[in-house]
Design a protein around this nucleic acid. Structure first.
Lengths: 121, 121
DNA sequence: TAACTTCCTAACCCTATTGTTATTTAGGCA
DNA sequence: TGCCTAAATAACAATAGGGTTAGGAAGTTA
C-alpha cells in the first residue's frame, strides 16, 4: 500500500466542531470564568459585559458538546466545566504560543548581535 | 481577593485564532494528509478534490501560524507539518470524542437492562 | 393573583470566512 | 523567446456564525 488511510469524514466533522467551539473569544472568556467554580448566568453576564441572550447562547453550545454541565437552583442556572480536557488544550496551546513568541524575540536579539559583530569588524 | 485574575484579551485572541485554524474540515484533511510526509500543492489538490486556489489559501493560513513549513523545488512547493502539537491536540480530542460516544452507548445498554429488570419483576 | 427575577428562545442584521473563477507570477523546457 | 506547468493572489458570491432586540416560560415573593 502506498497511501495512508484517509481520515473519515465523520471524524473530521466532529473534530472541527469541537475546535470550533474553542475558537470563539467569548466562549474562552466564559470558560476562563468557570475555571475555579460554577457560576450562574447572571454572574457571567456581569463579568463578560455582554447581553444575557448572548451568554445563554454560548452556554448552550458548550453544554450540548458536553463541555459544561447545568444545574438549576430556583430561577438560576448554574454552569460548571465538566470536561477538564478543555483547560488542558488551552494550556498546551498557550505554552506553544509562548514558545513561539520567545523564538521571535530571539530572532530580534540575534539580529542585533549580528549587526554588532558586523560593525566591530 | 474574591475573584480570579481575568484572562488577558491578547491571550484570548491568539488562543481563539489557533483553535480557529483547526476548526476547518478542509484544513484538518490537509493536515491528515501531511501526517507522514511532506506533499506538494498538486498532490494535496488531487487528494482533497478541491480547487488549487482553495488548497493554497488554507496552506497559507497554517504556514503563517507556524503549523507548516514550506520548501520549494522547481515550480513545486512542498509543505510539511512543523508543529507536532497539532496532532497531539487532535489525538486528545479524538480520544475524548470516543469516550463520549462509548458513554452514550452505555446509556442505551443500561436502559435496555433497566427495562428487562422492570419486566422481570 | 400580580409583580418581579432569571433564563431560554426566536428573529433579525451584520460581519467573517469559505470556495469559486480568473489572473498573475515564477520556474522548467523546447 | 515562447510555451507549459505549478503555485500564489485577487475578486466575488454564498454561507455560517456572533451579537442584538424582543418575547416568553418558569420560579419566587408580595
Amino acid at each position: 500500500m502506498q497511501s495512508v488511510k484517509p481520515i473519515p469524514q465523520e471524524v473530521v466533522q466532529q473534530l472541527s466542531e469541537y475546535f470550533g467551539i474553542l475558537s470563539e473569544p467569548m466562549r474562552l472568556r466564559i470558560l476562563s470564568l468557570l475555571r475555579e467554580e460554577e457560576k450562574c448566568v447572571q454572574e457571567l453576564v456581569e463579568a463578560t459585559q455582554t447581553s444575557q441572550a448572548n451568554v445563554s447562547k454560548h452556554l448552550k453550545v458548550m453544554l450540548q458538546a458536553g463541555i459544561l454541565t447545568r444545574r438549576t437552583e430556583g430561577t438560576s442556572a448554574y454552569y460548571r466545566v465538566e470536561d477538564p480536557l478543555t483547560f488542558e488544550l488551552c494550556n498546551l496551546v498557550c505554552n506553544r504560543l509562548a514558545a513561539r513568541i520567545e523564538q521571535q524575540a530571539r530572532h530580534f536579539r540575534d539580529f542585533t548581535l549580528a549587526n554588532a559583530e558586523e560593525k566591530s569588524k
